[in-house]
Design a protein around this nucleic acid. Structure first.
Lengths: 260, 260
DNA sequence: CGCAGCTTGTTCTCTTTTTCACAAGCTCTT
DNA sequence: AAGAGCTTGTGAAAAAGAGAACAAGCTGCG
């Protein structure tokens, strides 16, 4: 417990976890689920790297924000690790989420089963379209967005998904804030102005596609003709494989051969 | 042209653009569209910062990857800037995109008008569900995923959207690669193994929600009781507001007054 | 025409994030 | 029960990114 068990000095365990780490933690969680189902109860950071594409040291350091519980020479207990991460991300309990914008995207999100697996539960859906209000959306009934505050006084959701057209986004965000929402997942291509205590995270499909599009560079001169060598563009990498999951953190083309 | 016009030394104009910059470029593009519509034909980096929440120096630096064309004392020509960025991102021309997975999400994406504004055109949709094949999806007809390669021999799309269940993702990715796809926008919670020359970008709603969830910290001890002070959790910030658009880059609370 | 006022492009500094490297620590074998 | 063989946690180095600061450069006013 001298060097290894250093958490006591409150170096990591305490401070807030950086966003890149949070993103990876969510990724680990996904894999941990797989491993649990496969009855793997112990895993080493090296194996994690092999499967997730995330560097082993990175993994260990990420975990250092959760305290320590890996056993040298052995690895990490899978269920335990799962619990710790879930706990840190506050998804060991159910998290209530509300949705505003019952369009195609909103509908897809409510119907997405993945959310429940992570204990996210969309408990209400809102829209401002009179033609939609009152209608069912999967197992919910679309409600008037103007009743948002009132409704959420009961539900007490703290997370909201904003899936309305750009023009309405800011207005809706204001309503959300007023209704006690502290975190917004924003799909509208707008810069939301919200108070300090509200956390916003933006998702933009177009942006993602644009990044991909850029990387098409240097090819479409002709058609196929792979001659030159993508190696140059891709930098030199180990033989490995992989394209790390969480959109951001990895250089995006840190790939790996098919079979490690 | 001595110090200002430095691009000649091929410092920036050449090398590849880092991903965070690409993400911001896409963001600028969005705003540029707005400004064009508002008939604003010149804009300064300071104003850009005010509107996008992205630091002015950052903006100028991002632009340095495109060469130089801002006028000191004046600013940037909006249409020109728009063109340059679009060109760099290869979306000055139409970009054909194919979709695999005609579920809720896939459907929402095909129906999303924002894509066309950026010249992304979903030109084909595929699925493996016999019940879906042959059916219409907006203005497309869902085709058998097994015909992907054949169909894309005509279409020659280089970008693909992968919106199938996790279990099928890798298989579909293989098909895509075989069909000449060079860039994949992956919505499945899986680590795709693809050859070096294929670029993957992952989007995970759950991950986004998890990051948000974490930041709820320190509050839900009781219920409302906002007494303590979220300031502690959020770090000390100016009074301002704002949550920058592109999910990643900005510290998430790099804010700004509403009116400068 | 020349100076005052802004704004760009870029260099430098500071911060954040990633990776390396290794002492410390289990386990299991002999 | 002592050593071989792995694996963890973390300090230190490297890399990447963001922001401040400033020389150079337009513009337009007086």
């Amino acid at each position: 417990m001298s060097t290894l068990a250093r958490s006591k000095n409150g170096k990591n365990k305490t401070g807030k976890v950086p966003v890149p780490t949070l993103e990876r933690l969510a990724t680990y969680l996904r894999f941990l689920g797989d491993w649990e189902q496969a009855n793997i109860d112990t895993i080493s950071s090296a194996e994690v790297e092999r499967q997730t594409g995330i560097n082993a040291a990175q993994f260990r350091k990420d975990l250092s924000y959760l305290g320590e519980f890996g056993k040298p020479g052995v690895g990490y207990n899978v269920p335990d690790l799962h619990n710790r991460i879930a706990s840190k991300l506050k998804i060991d309990r159910e998290q209530r989420v509300i949705l505003v914008g019952a369009g195609n995207l909103g509908s897809a999100l409510v119907g997405y089963p993945g959310l429940n697996e992570y204990r996210f539960n969309i408990v209400a859906a809102f829209d401002n379209n009179p033609g939609k209000i009152g209608r069912p959306l999967w197992d919910l009934t679309i409600q008037d967005v103007l009743t948002l505050k009132e409704v959420n006084q009961r539900l007490r959701a703290r997370i909201a998904i904003l899936a309305v057209p750009a023009t309405a986004a800011q207005q809706v965000a204001d309503l959300m804030v007023d209704a006690g929402i502290r975190a917004i997942l924003n799909f509208a291509p707008v810069l939301l102005r919200v108070p300090d205590h509200v956390f916003v995270r933006n998702v933009s499909f177009v942006q993602e596609l644009a990044v991909l599009s850029y990387h098409l560079s240097g090819e479409e001169t002709e058609l196929s003709a792979d001659t030159s060598g993508p190696a140059a563009a891709n930098g030199s990498l180990p033989d490995g494989v992989v394209a790390p999951l969480p959109a951001s953190h990895a250089p995006s083309h840190e790939l790996r051969k098919h079979r490690a």
